[in-house]
Write a protein that binds this DNA or RNA. Structure first.
Lengths: 234, 234
DNA sequence: GAGAAATCAAGAGCACTGCTCTCGTTTATG
DNA sequence: CATAAACGAGAGCAGTGCTCTTGATTTCTC
């Protein structure tokens, strides 16, 4: 059963995916250098030796080009984190969490503009197409997978959780395949948002010389997150 | 002792600050509607009935205009949070923290584009001038002020903290006027980053229908933060 | 108070952008 | 082989940030 795309038999079909890839590569290069806000479709066209109007045969608009780049970034991060999480299977969950968090940070530091593309200010009036959703949750799902694969969780302090929230948690856990209590669910969410919050602050310069060693701070925070979730250290 | 600005005596000096304010107001209106990325200096000029080149008498560039808007946003948030924190003085610290966190969220929901201006993707190649730093830390300082004004902290679980990090914490606490131990310092930082992380996720659509009640989630997270810092509930 | 100097709004203009349309040319399809 | 689809190139439109010049108005100085 062939995929949704027709088999690239003809000369033209083959050339099409090559040209498309070349455009995407040139665009990615520019984003890596100057950031997404400055991305110029015309400049990308010049890079690949085309005229700007020709690019529109491959991407409907500049936003469509950016969307393709967003998906690429999501998948790049997803690949990176998933691989990291898998490579530590069997080790203590707390260690796995910290390592995975550090992997996210490493990827973000290596691709700051891609990170901004994903977790930065959304493009005004831009709604992520459904294509991006699947790719967009991979990194988060990989992190949560560490919790899922942990059979034993240390006891944690539990707060009262409003009924309306507890109800939401039921569907959320089902969606994520998690089998934990409400307190742990909240701990996972807060840890997740804290991880990306700290990273966003570091990358976007909100912590201007806050501490001398950002990685040490990040590691300490990640360790604290793992404890708050109840991930065993051994 | 007069301020740095000369007294606006003449007709021209008086008109200048009025025109400047009008430009700023028009720009703020446009940002509130369409977001900062789409802000057009020419459109703002049209709004105030000027020609675009005239605007350059008041702002050196589009970035300078945006910088002024960023400072305004910082001060707007700073005013809002500071007022909230002061109005709860004397009440239990945990309650104060949650209320202050909710105030940040309320402000952000009412001024999403201003929030994006502050905590979103920074403008490429843009370095915040020193003017913004003082305004930019007001909200965070107000939050941390709640911890500072608390004489008694509940005991919290303490993790090992790397020496290099502990050393950074010393200077940081001095800067903030905080008198707490290393574990609490870390808890404050993580709570702070978590607060804005969760809010950024909510506003930027990273939590698409994550839970049905975002405020309940935010309140639960804020409550958990207060506990992790050791802020007393009574 | 008159003349010099600074300040201002306006307009033209440059280089750039996203995007559309048309025009020959090339490839695939019947 | 003829028709249709896809393609690259070019011109063109409306918009952008920004600069420079021009003429009028206010302010400063003698």
């Amino acid at each position: 059963m062939p995929a949704a795309e027709p088999a690239p038999t003809g000369v033209r079909a083959r050339a099409r995916i090559e040209v498309r890839a070349a455009i995407l590569a040139a665009a990615a290069k520019r984003v890596a250098g100057d950031g997404a806000a400055d991305l110029s479709l015309r400049a990308v066209a010049r890079d690949v030796g085309m005229v700007s109007s020709a690019v529109y045969r491959y991407f409907d608009s500049r936003d469509a080009l950016l969307t393709a780049l967003i998906i690429e970034a999501y998948d790049s991060l997803g690949d990176f984190v998933e691989e990291q999480v898998e490579s530590t299977r069997g080790r203590p969950a707390a260690e796995r969490w910290v390592d995975a968090a550090l992997a996210v940070r490493r990827w973000a530091l290596e691709h700051p503009n891609d990170y901004a593309l994903i977790y930065g200010t959304p493009i005004p009036g831009y709604a992520a197409p459904d294509d991006t959703v699947a790719s967009g949750t991979r990194a988060s799902r990989a992190l949560i997978g560490i919790v899922r694969e942990t059979d034993r969780l240390d006891p944690i302090v539990s707060h009262h959780i409003e009924p309306v929230l507890a109800e939401s948690f039921v569907a959320l856990r089902k969606e994520l395949g998690l089998d934990v209590d409400d307190a742990t669910t909240l701990a996972v969410i807060t840890a997740w948002s804290q991880l990306f919050g700290l990273l966003t602050f570091e990358l976007f310069g909100q912590t201007r010389n806050f501490v001398s060693d950002d990685e040490a701070l990040f590691r300490a925070a990640a360790t604290s997150m793992a404890a708050s979730i109840g991930l065993p250290m051994t």
